[in-house]
Design a protein around this nucleic acid. Structure first.
Lengths: 132, 132
DNA sequence: GTCCATTATTTAACTAGGTAAGTAATTTAA
DNA sequence: TTAAATTACTTACCTAGTTAAATAATGGAC
């Protein structure tokens, strides 16, 4: 296995693990947060909007959204097209969002403490290069 | 969510997915391959050796090794310390290893086709920076 | 030698990713 | 206007990561 791949996998595993620990006080996981994040940003999204944005498969999002509805972070309504589910933050989520967001920002700064603006740009550029 | 994290997650998800597709003809998955790879490299490893090397938790390796034994890619024996499991490639795995390895190498070259030696070093360096 | 701490592995239960195949609503086209 | 194709989402089933707690073998202190 190419050492680059090995390192990529290891870094993202560690990132995910530490994100989970950060979110633990809120009973949230990293992937759940990424859904909350984009729903908050767009105010309202369909499931297709979400899985397209996050670049994961539809069934993954179905499951995560259902869980977040159970946990009262999300609410779901229907629009004119009755196939679609319209997802938005619950009342409770709207109240708690800033607190969670602050914990995430603090964590991100810690995780990137050895990263300059330039390092960040370089990394983005290199990852982009792999996408082509 | 910081765009760097978003991109890191997306890139590794895509890498994993494409690795799985590459390995599909051999009825193998990416994580299973990473175990075969390090066992082949070290000839014989304990479970602890494996999860330390791969930097994952012990139960993950227990499960993957069991599956690979079922699929006749690995064989397990016991040493003097009867708590330990000594893992090595099966006869079948030794025969088929070069074929799988070649498929992986071809895939890696394709995945990294836009990457120069210098890009690779830069990426390694940046990931290393995040580990500190 | 016996008791206790440590080490190696496992089990159980959860989240999260994937594919393949299914259902129901909508759209297209003849 | 109805039949076929497409779209949105779900269900079922697999791999793979995690934590917490259990079991069994080993090693050390006395």
């Amino acid at each position: 296995m190419n050492p680059i791949f090995h390192h990529l996998f290891q870094t993202t595993r560690r990132l995910n693990k530490q994100l989970n620990r950060t979110l633990n006080p809120f009973q949230l996981h990293a992937s759940q947060w990424s859904v909350l994040y984009c729903v908050q940003k767009h105010e309202q999204m369909t499931l297709t909007d979400i899985w397209t944005y996050l670049n994961v498969e539809a069934p993954t999002v179905t499951r995560t959204v259902n869980r977040l509805v159970e946990l009262d972070w999300l609410t779901v309504t229907h629009g004119d097209d009755r196939r679609e589910k319209l997802v938005s933050l619950s009342e409770r989520a709207i109240k708690q969002y800033p607190t969670v967001e602050q914990a995430i920002i603090t964590f991100e700064n810690e995780f990137l403490r050895n990263f300059t603006e330039n390092d960040a740009n370089q990394l983005m550029e290199l990852l982009h290069q792999l996408d082509k």
